[in-house]
């Protein structure tokens, strides 16, 4: 894409005669040019280069060999990569699906009855969104530690049998890390849905109650359909966040034990900067981008069709 697509305007009369009007026409492009220059150099160009790199087998130093779609085929055949994308699916559950279910119920209950302290509640539950993920990771690593808060709590109620090094356990490390994502997302989703539900006209509830609708009917027939737009935004934000979980994995498990918590974004880093598989790393990054696109598109389509 050219920064200044002006060629079409210089047709008749030569450059000199229309220069004043032309300057006028160029104004919008001049306002956009600085932003576009940096954006093109540090976003669009690297994106195109990533697509290019993904077609090669390259260790970052020596000469690259062209492998076509080989790196993409690896995503389907390489056990570790398949695991990584599978874990991304699990993370979508923990970051997006679970928080949306909890948030819907929570917000609905809080909307039915006006209670005091709602602004303070909103401030508190939104807090995890602004804390740096590395800090969240440090906090939860201490909670999940062998002598951490979680195991201490289990021991204090006599459930010693359940204690374990949560992040070092093959079966439990993935849900343990995933629940950190749930902790981060749920407040955002709840605040978003609360805002949507506050806009439902009171008459709707009154009419439903006159018809004898119970809390559950009210929830399914009025509340859920009314917040479809908010739910779409919530799902989009949290799914995208779940697919970009790099810092959390880097800080807590480094993808381990084995490959039990590795995710695509961590594999990008590991392959490009640790194991010298630069082409494969680029292919994973490109695939991740495509998935984010498709998911965003799909979530918005489904919500529109339902409307």
């Amino acid at each position: 894409m050219r920064a200044l697509p002006r060629a079409s305007n210089t047709a008749a009369g030569g450059p000199g005669r229309h220069s004043a009007r032309q300057g006028h026409r160029l104004t919008p492009y001049l306002f956009i040019a600085p932003a576009l220059a940096i954006y093109a150099a540090f976003m669009l160009y690297p994106l195109a280069r990533a697509v290019h790199l993904s077609l090669f087998d390259w260790d970052g130093l020596s000469l690259a060999t062209f492998v076509g779609a080989g790196n993409y085929a690896d995503i389907l055949t390489d056990a570790r990569l398949r695991a990584a994308f599978g874990h991304a699916g699990a993370f979508i559950f923990f970051y997006a699906v679970l928080p949306c279910c909890v948030g819907l119920v929570l917000a609905a209950v809080l909307t039915r009855a006006k209670v005091r302290g709602l602004p303070l509640f909103r401030t508190l539950v939104f807090l995890p969104q602004v804390i740096a993920m590395v800090v969240v990771a440090v906090a939860f690593k201490q909670i999940y530690a062998p002598d951490g808060l979680l195991n201490s709590a289990l021991r204090s109620v006599g459930l010693d049998a359940l204690t374990r090094p949560w992040l070092g356990d093959y079966a439990f490390s993935l849900p343990a890390v995933g629940l950190i994502g749930s902790w981060v997302s749920t407040g955002l989703v709840t605040v978003l849905l609360l805002a949507g539900m506050a806009r439902i006209p009171a008459e709707l509830f009154e009419a439903a109650r006159l018809d004898g609708a119970g809390a559950i009917r009210e929830f399914l027939a009025i509340i859920v359909p009314s917040v479809r737009a908010e739910l779409t935004v919530a799902l989009t934000l949290t799914i995208v966040a779940s697919l970009k979980t790099f810092d959390l994995i880097y800080m807590t498990t480094s993808g381990g034990p084995g490959s039990s918590t590795t995710v695509p974004s961590y594999e990008v880093y590991r392959r490009a900067f640790e194991t010298g598989q630069v082409g494969s790393a680029a292919a994973i990054g490109v695939t991740l981008t495509v998935i984010i696109f498709l998911v965003t598109l799909a979530v918005n389509r489904i919500s529109e069709r339902g409307a």
């Binding site: 894409m1 956009i32 932003a35 576009l36 954006y39 540090f42 976003m43 669009l44 690297p46 994106l47 280069r49 990533a50 290019h52 790199l53 970052g60 995208v240 697919l243 970009k244 790099f246 695509p264 974004s265 990008v268 880093y269 490009a272 900067f273 630069v278 790393a281 680029a282 994973i284 990054g285 490109v286 991740l288 981008t289 984010i292 696109f293 965003t296």
Partner: peptide, 24 residues
């Protein structure tokens, strides 16, 4: 077209551009 080009950037994860950015 230019506006959609900018919108694209909101969705592109850093993971996609970081590899070529580093080597370049």
């Amino acid at each position: 077209a230019l506006f959609y080009l900018f919108l694209l950037g909101i969705m592109v994860p850093a993971e996609a551009i970081i590899v070529p950015l580093f080597f370049d």
